[in-house]
Design a protein around this nucleic acid. Structure first.
Lengths: 343, 343
DNA sequence: CTTTGTCCATAAAACCTTTCATTTTACTTC
DNA sequence: GAAGTAAAATGAAAGGTTTTATGGACAAAG
């Protein structure tokens, strides 16, 4: 069943049918109805491939993320997919893993598939060296590239991110003000946003002359979900005699590792140890006491990202970088002043 | 840059170029090399839309799931996407939500986009009434439909699932054998697999003459992630005087609600209350003691699903239904006999 | 030297839609 | 009634690939 069949049955030309299906300008109401009737009756749907060929688009956006099963990334993907579809686009998902080569190949795949834009979900797509970001620029030469939680200045690349530096800075200062001075930063990543977070921590500590040495920044290198290993990492430090009464983690899961460490070490939270996570995810409700965490307004970010993308695709001028501020949400794992106490 | 340009530059016909790019049968080695050289040199990539039009496929699979941010579904999507791409397919993701209408419209969208197959991730796509499953049959008339964690007997529909009935039956029996007799079943869903799980629980309880009445099966109706509300649900029962010393939940998150309830009620786990979750997700490591849970071998299921789908697409005869058995993993929230103790 | 068969390259058709330039129709106005 | 204009409808080309039927070249065999 092609547009020819329809045009024949309706007694009009294919051009008319096409115009009924699309812009429908310059077609009389009578003809339009007749054509629509035939289309409904025959249950005709235009061939998407031919349509793509004619229009040079299939209204598809490529979504890349390292690991769609990650709690935070999964939520981002959910928001993005929903909002894309609400705008008439749908999305090809590519889970790239964390290696550069695999990212490149996914990128090429999406370009080859002729997507209208590419969204990089998560900060681990932007590297330090310009040469390693080459693949993003190459892609951006073809289609707009959107970065969520990362920033890169380049033509046709748009960055939407939360102000991780300030959020962590603020969280650190609040922790200090609550009386905790030896605060560890606990991370497992050197991604763009991780570095910003870390800088926020360090800056806050240094501003209060509390940053002693680099051992206060702890890198965990194991599996992303292995809470035991995270806990063990901290336990080793503790047993070596490193002093700390606060931990700011780059991620709720790591913070959960810290909570577990406290349990294993017999430390009471928040009396002996305060913990602040990041992302304000489901996990914050899963421990006792409940976890303080930084909320970076993921849905707002995604909303803004889609808005920007739609603007760009519509040919409008759009801001190259959009930054939102986050919020420190205090719960049971910190000694929050009463005014900050939130559920 | 089209296939014409390449053919001209290489001094061959377009058909030859096409054959080099695809089957490459009946092309002399010399010609092949020459064509490949030109292609590389010009950085030519075939136009995907034209290719789709010619071949009537773009090697794309539609993935539908209610909520890709759900811990379990997100993992499933991750596995599926990875394995699809390893097989040369990529995937369009649609998050449908839990309503029937939205599922239908996503389904139509995918069909219109001419995907080669559709994967329904999660058991909530199959309904009780045949009329409500109509949309699946309609889709299956066009492309193969794969069900993960659900079953439906219909032409061109393939079901891959774990034996939820037996897993829960076994878990229940084990709990009973450990000395816990008043066991609640806690669920938030009436999906296909939820019903199977519930039936497993009920059958086990009845076989031991321990099923007293329907209040032992508790439906939680709130948000999927609201652990507090889940806990509250149980608290109300407890305060009403309902007796229970074990809870089997249809989901780790609900089980987490049960753990929190125990905390709030001052009950000690596992002494006063035993809890078994489902999915063996990240959450099991997030509470103290760690949560016993049922592992339904998600990766195995996904692997098998892709294998089956690839078989079907390759025109081979494939089993309409594939069932794997799950495993009860005992941790701290149950009084496991020592032999069952696992990490 | 001719014939037969194999291997490979070629031209043309098929896939289906969009869109531009053009023609036809309908309507208004003098 | 003719001319001019705006709206509606049409025809044909373009978009780029795959594939089939056809034809040509070359090698081996008679």
């Amino acid at each position: 069943m092609t547009i020819y069949d329809i045009s024949e049955k309706a007694g009009v030309s294919i051009a008319t049918v096409s115009r009924v299906l699309n812009g429908s300008s310059n077609v009389s109401e009578k003809t339009k109805q007749k054509v629509l009737d035939v289309i409904n009756q025959c249950e005709y749907t235009p061939n998407a491939f031919a349509r793509g060929l004619g229009l040079n688009t299939m209204k598809t956006i490529g979504i890349m993320c390292a690991d769609s099963s990650d709690l935070y990334l999964a939520k981002a993907i959910y928001y993005i997919e929903q909002k894309l579809r609400a705008n008439g686009y749908d999305s090809i998902l590519c889970c790239t893993g964390y290696g550069l080569e695999s990212k490149k190949s996914c990128m090429n795949l999406l370009i080859t598939k002729k997507v209208d834009g590419i969204i990089l979900v998560g900060s681990n797509f932007v590297y330090d060296k310009d040469t390693e970001n080459r693949y993003i620029l190459d892609a951006a030469a073809q289609v707009p590239v959107m970065l969520l939680n990362a920033a890169l200045e380049a033509p046709n690349v748009y960055s939407i991110l939360s102000d991780d530096f300030s959020s962590v800075y603020e969280a650190t200062v609040q922790l200090i003000q609550s009386g905790v001075e030896d605060i560890l930063y606990f991370t497992n990543s050197t991604s763009y946003s991780s570095k910003k977070k870390m800088a926020g921590y360090r800056s806050a500590m240094e501003s209060q002359k509390l940053f002693r040495n680099n051992s206060m920044i702890q890198f965990y290198q194991g599996s992303h979900e292995d809470i035991h290993a995270m806990s063990e990492h901290l336990m080793k430090l503790y047993q070596k005699g490193l002093q700390f009464h606060g931990i700011i983690a780059s991620d709720d899961c790591l913070a959960m590792g810290a909570v577990r460490f406290a349990l294993n070490a017999g430390l009471s939270i928040p009396r002996d140890l305060c913990v602040i996570g990041y992302n304000n995810s489901l996990l914050v409700h899963c421990c006792e006491p409940e976890m303080s965490s930084i909320d970076n307004k993921l849905e707002t970010l995604c909303q803004s990202l889609i808005l920007t993308l739609m603007g760009v695709l519509g040919g409008r001028e759009m801001p190259k970088q959009t930054v939102f501020s986050g919020e420190v949400v205090h719960r049971g794992t910190t000694l929050a002043s009463s005014r900050d106490c939130q559920k």
